[in-house]
Design a protein around this nucleic acid. Structure first.
Length: 442
DNA sequence: CGACTTTGACCGGCGC
DNA sequence: GCGCCGGTCAAAGTCG
């Protein structure tokens, strides 16, 4: 039997072509150096040239610009020329000043819009933070109650919830597809329903909150270590750039898929246990499915670390399943729809496998599928405030935006997914700093 | 020459 | 027990 692929047609070389993709620079409305800017781009008036006037669409209607130079004109008709030139200059000055005022007003309006959006964002963030703190207090109370009742049904912390779901599945409910399986053609809506139904059911059976204290940390961590993160993204390349170094150690033909599955190990550190599988989707060969497994035992590249800090809380919230809101119940897809709104991505947790799998589906972005919504990701995630101070957040936001804009690959997405495995799931010695940054239990 | 990929062989889990 | 299948190993080949 030979299930290996001997053809070069599907060579899974990790060479990425992401460098060839165009970098989209965002327009900075408020940059003083931006020459396109409305209020600051107008050149000083004394630098106005005939060409610039033409560009400003100022029609003097004087037809003065002939082949003669101004010095020639002054030699012919010095008085008339001077007067008309002054008049023209004044007219131009008035027009330009009016234009300047208009641009200033527009700039002011844009600033107001920006400030308003910023305030809304901060208000939401503060609201989120207060909710989390509230919940944290409840967790402490429930933890105390839990210690008094060791056999209680509650105490389902975030990782534990997955353990329970996985257990339920192993105990005979294997037929029940809890969530999205990338290899099956099920509608996302159906999966969302299943997801929320199961999680809600789980919630109902546990009268105590899902966010209560953890009573079996070791068990949960063991599961988390074996949990997987799967990322579906459209890519022509055979492997997407995720800021880590990988070494291929095998390739097999998997049943039910004409495309080979490639196996990689992380080579950024000796004995790093992290592995990943890369395979094209059988239904749509333009979709690349990358599945990560294990926890890094080393520090990640700076670009990856930045996103780790930003997205770990998001991953935790995703894992937390349903969360209550003033509007009622939100299913686990809420978060990733929030984090990745412009890409229409969907993140789900699957407990149908022996170990839970998080799937990030980034294939539904209508435009430029490999273009990660970088600015949107950071701005919309809004959970960073749970982990760091406002000042740190501000500086990091700029840093992250720059990093991501400079590298519009799927790096951020993958790191976001890996985050769950690295910084959140396991308190590695080498990752202690990261975990401390992510320290809050949501 | 070292790092990496390729690829046939091997191993263990699982279902029948 | 047997075969299927997924995952891994390791020798050979390739590349810079």
């Amino acid at each position: 039997m030979n299930t290996n692929n001997n053809s070069n047609n599907y060579n899974m070389s990790p060479l990425s072509d992401h460098q060839n993709k165009p970098i989209i620079h965002e327009f900075d409305f408020f940059s003083l150096n931006n020459t396109n800017h409305a209020s600051t781009s107008a050149p000083p008036l004394h630098h106005c040239t005939p060409s610039s006037l033409t560009e400003s669409k100022v029609n003097t209607s004087l037809n003065l610009l002939t082949t003669n130079t101004s010095s020639d004109q002054s030699m012919v008709e010095p008085d008339i020329s001077n007067k008309s030139e002054d008049k023209r200059d004044k007219l131009e000055l008035d027009v330009l000043q009016a234009e300047l005022e208009r641009k200033k007003a527009e700039n002011h309006r844009l600033r107001n819009m920006f400030d308003e959006a910023k305030m809304n964002y901060e208000a939401l963030q503060m609201h989120m933070l207060s909710l989390m703190q509230e919940r944290s207090v409840e967790d402490c109370k429930e933890e105390e109650q839990e210690e008094e009742k060791p056999n209680g049904n509650g105490g389902v912390l975030i990782p534990r919830q997955i353990v329970d779901l996985a257990k339920d599945n192993e105990e005979g409910s294997k037929d029940e597809e809890l969530v999205f399986d990338p290899d099956k053609e099920e509608s996302d809506h159906e999966n969302e329903r299943n997801d929320s139904q199961v999680l809600a059911a789980n919630n109902n059976t546990n009268n105590v909150s899902n966010f209560s204290a953890q009573t079996n940390v070791e068990e949960a961590e063991a599961t988390m270590k074996k949990a997987k993160v799967s990322v579906r993204a459209r890519s022509e390349a055979n492997m997407i750039n995720d800021a880590c170094q990988w070494r291929k150690y095998g390739q097999k033909m998997a049943k039910g898929n004409p495309f080979p599955r490639a196996y990689y190990r992380c080579t950024m550190a000796l004995n790093c246990p992290v592995k990943k599988q890369v395979q094209r989707c059988a239904e749509d060969k333009s979709i690349l499915v990358t599945t990560y497994e294990g926890n890094h035992n080393h520090a990640l590249p700076p670009a990856a670390m930045e996103m780790v800090k930003q997205t770990s809380a998001a991953a935790r919230m995703l894992l937390s399943g349903p969360m209550t809101s003033p509007d009622g119940l939100m299913n686990s897809n809420f978060l990733t729809r929030t984090v990745f709104p412009s890409s229409s991505s969907i993140a789900t947790i699957s407990a149908s496998a022996p170990f839970p799998t998080i799937t990030l589906d980034l294939t539904q972005s209508p435009n430029n599928p490999l273009q990660f919504p970088t600015q949107t990701l950071f701005n919309q995630s809004g959970f960073s405030g749970l982990q760091m101070s406002q000042d740190a957040e501000t500086s990091q936001s700029q840093q992250i935006s720059q990093n991501l804009t400079a590298d519009p690959d799927l790096t951020a997405v993958l790191v976001a997914a890996i985050t769950y495995m690295i910084g959140v799931a396991q308190p590695n010695d080498n990752d202690t700093k990261t975990n401390n940054n992510n320290g809050n239990v949501i």
